[in-house]
Write a protein that binds this DNA or RNA. Sequence first.
DNA 1: GCCAACGTTGGC
DNA 2: GCCAACGTTGGC
Length: 147
Amino acid sequence: MKSEPDEFSIQDLKRKNVEPWTGIRNYQARNFLRDEMSVGDEVLFYHSSTKPPGIAGTMTIASAPYPDPLQFKKGSKYFDESASKESPRWISVDVQFQAIFATYIPLEMLKKEKALEGMKILQKGTRLSVTPVTASEFKHIVKMGGK
DNA sequence: GCCAACGTTGGC
DNA sequence: GCCAACGTTGGC
């Protein structure tokens, strides 16, 4: 899962421990959150739009999906006029801090790894903020991170 | 339903 | 700031 560290970083998550992951406004990303994730699943925390971009650590899914409260909040940049409480359009999950990697893994490093060739986030044109990771990719990255 | 125009993401 | 690679919108 990607976040811009200027907005919300893994250090912020460590401080808060549990935080709602809000503001997903892409249907594919939403569907992935809603349909493919369960409480306890481990997640890689990716820092995007920073120098250098890369994976900073891990967290876990800490709640079932629920309607993203920001879609109802007038004035929020995530407000969605066409969403209603009866039929919400966007969803959030809570995430819980797990670990900050001993070694931050820049995107450039990830690209060099043979074992990660097929990883979704490394494919051309992938800019979804939520993408799937296989168990072996996850293990490989955790090993690279030294945690 | 098509598709041009526009908006967004995010690495570089 | 540029631009590739999308996604979304809206006229037709």
